[in-house]
Design a protein around this nucleic acid. Structure first.
Length: 503
RNA sequence: GUCCCGUUCGUCUAGUCAGGUCAGGACACCGGGUUUUCAUCCCGGCAACAGGGGUUCGAAUCCCCUACGGGACGCCA
């Protein structure tokens, strides 16, 4: 009797929906459909500090926009819920309790300061950073004493000292990793929430996931997961690790180097079915090698063994070409009109824009030139206009700081952006008026345009980030940007003045 | 640094499992044609089996080593 195929995607709601998530979702879905199984969407929100419900709904929206459908999820109750890990806390804690009782896990009272110190020393001694098992052999009395005192603690897993973990990756075959390489991973944090490793094993088991299809980045922690399955007496699912999408420099796709937000592509005017089609040709070809295909066509013949394992570079040029082909081959003219309206040429969007444009209009024909940059993926900018009266180095610095600061914006609204610029000007000891032309240019390529903060809020974080980066790129290519050294210096300075970066 | 994974045109890839066609297609690029411009479209061109050893009559394909690239090494996922 063949086991029912159940796959899952497990995004963590900690930021902008990422094309990598869509990439994994696509193949999980294709695999599930091909095998008449189901795909589950599970929200991995065990990081209480970073998870937000805005991000969660953004992820759901972005996947829906792409046409990715799940059979069970937080919005689609099924037999195996809840589908949000934060709502499964009791389950996770009881399993952790069981592991402790069995002697497969133990409490650890080490402070993060101590851990950092140990890690530092290990790196200095050229050792592999790893938990030194300081708390492994605490006596019952000691543990009780510390707990009674209310000392914060985590629960760590116990890992064999000898031998190796051997598991089969569906795509790569046998993988062997020495248990010595595996750290005594934290299973439960001091706030009582499980870590990914614990929660994902427990939930995959309880949700009867048959195939774990995830990114290559997880290979090295798979032994931890296998061990947990063993300790809990559960059968492990099959594992298939897909290659990671890459930047043009071959590093793992990151928003610092590439637009990685799903909404970037939506807002820049790409069709969702093109995104899926394009993602589908990253690491995969249909047996007949056709290049234009729908999700259904992909699913119909999908064979995971056909995945190629080299990390594919996400190439905007080919994506653009593909989108062009859909526009002129797959859609009728009526369709295109309809989709164009859906995109930005609609009343809602115009109503959004008009208040900021109205004072600057004399007749209708002013509207398009004035707002053109809101509809343009890449407005043209020139070095001279960009810099204006600023010193080029200063301009580069401001753009970079702004890019970093913008990452901290929680609610992408005019007012918050305004505050950010006020602080920026103050901290850099400039008048707001002095620094704004730079950003007008970076956003619109013009000096006559809409109010900056409103324009930025309409553009959204993804398009804004790319524009800032493009301006920075222009400075660099003209040899007046930030050098590598300059960037390092700036980073330090930034940290002092603005605090840590997040990205 | 340690471990793991990977490597076919600049890019996405076919071919690898079952060794035997000048290594095929697509993007990009270059050239030509159609088009009042541009784009589309059509035709053509450039361009790769990372390197070295084996096994074999024969290796992109099987084995080993090296190099290079990537990933992991968090109370992130």
């Amino acid at each position: 009797m063949k086991q029912l195929v159940r796959t899952r995607i497990a995004p963590s709601p900690t930021g902008n929906p990422h094309v990598g998530t869509a990439y994994m979702a696509l193949f999980n879905l294709a695999f599930a459909r091909r095998n008449k199984g189901s795909m589950i969407l599970r929200i991995e929100d065990t990081d209480r500090a970073r998870s937000t419900s805005e991000s969660e709904s953004a992820i759901l929206d972005s996947l829906r926009w792409l046409g990715i459908e799940w059979d069970e999820g937080p919005d689609k109750p099924g037999k195996f819920g809840p589908y949000r890990q934060s709502e499964r806390l009791e389950i996770h804690q009881s399993i952790v309790g069981r592991l402790v009782e069995q002697g497969d896990a133990y409490p650890c009272f080490c402070t993060s300061e101590r851990l950092n110190q140990v890690r530092k020393e290990q790196i200095a001694n050229k050792e592999t950073p790893r938990y030194d098992r300081h708390c492994l052999n605490l006596s019952k009395e000691e543990i009780e004493k510390k707990m009674d005192r209310g000392d914060p603690y985590v629960i760590r897993m116990k890992v064999p000292q000898e031998g190796e973990c051997i598991f089969t990756d569906e795509l790569r075959g046998e993988v062997r990793i020495d248990w010595k390489q595996i750290d005594h991973q934290v299973l439960q944090k001091s706030d009582g929430y499980p870590t990914y490793h614990l929660a994902n094993v427990v939930d995959d088991h309880m949700m009867e996931i048959s195939h774990v299809i995830r990114g290559e980045e997880w290979i090295s922690s798979t032994p931890k997961h296998i061990l947990l399955y063993q300790q809990l007496g559960w059968d492990a699912p099959s594992f298939a690790h897909l290659p990671l999408l890459r930047n043009p420099d071959k590093s793992k796709l990151s928003k610092r180097k590439n637009p990685t937000g799903i909404f970037y592509y939506r807002d820049a005017g790409y069709l969702p079915e093109v995104m899926l089609n394009y993602l589908g040709m990253m690491g995969y070809t249909l047996p007949d090698q056709r290049e234009i295909f729908s999700l259904d066509e992909l699913s119909e013949s999908f064979d995971i063994k056909r995945m190629s394992l080299g990390g594919p570079i996400f190439d905007l040029a080919k994506l653009k070409w593909l989108n062009g082909r859909y526009l002129r081959e797959k859609l009728s003219e009526d369709d295109v009109v309809e989709r164009l309206i859906q995109w930005k040429l609609n009343t809602t969007k115009f109503k959004n824009i008009l208040p900021h444009a109205l004072q600057r209009l004399e007749n209708f024909s002013d509207f398009i030139p004035l707002t053109e940059f809101l509809f343009n993926e890449h407005p043209e900018i020139t070095l001279e206009n960009l810099i204006g009266k600023l010193d080029p180095g200063q301009a580069a610095k401001l753009l970079k700081i702004c890019e970093w600061e913008l990452e901290k914006v929680k609610n992408w609204h005019r007012d918050e952006i305004f505050c950010l610029f006020q602080d920026l000007a103050k901290t850099e000891e400039k008048k707001l008026k002095e620094i704004l032309p730079l950003f007008f240019q970076a956003m619109s390529g013009k000096s006559i345009s809409l109010p900056l903060f409103d324009a930025m809020s309409i553009l959204g974080p993804d398009l804004v980030r790319v524009r800032l980066r493009k301006a920075l790129g222009l400075l660099n290519s003209e040899g007046v940007g930030l050098s590598k050294k300059g960037l390092k210096v700036l980073e330090k300075e930034y940290q002092q003045k603005y605090g840590n970066r997040i990205d």
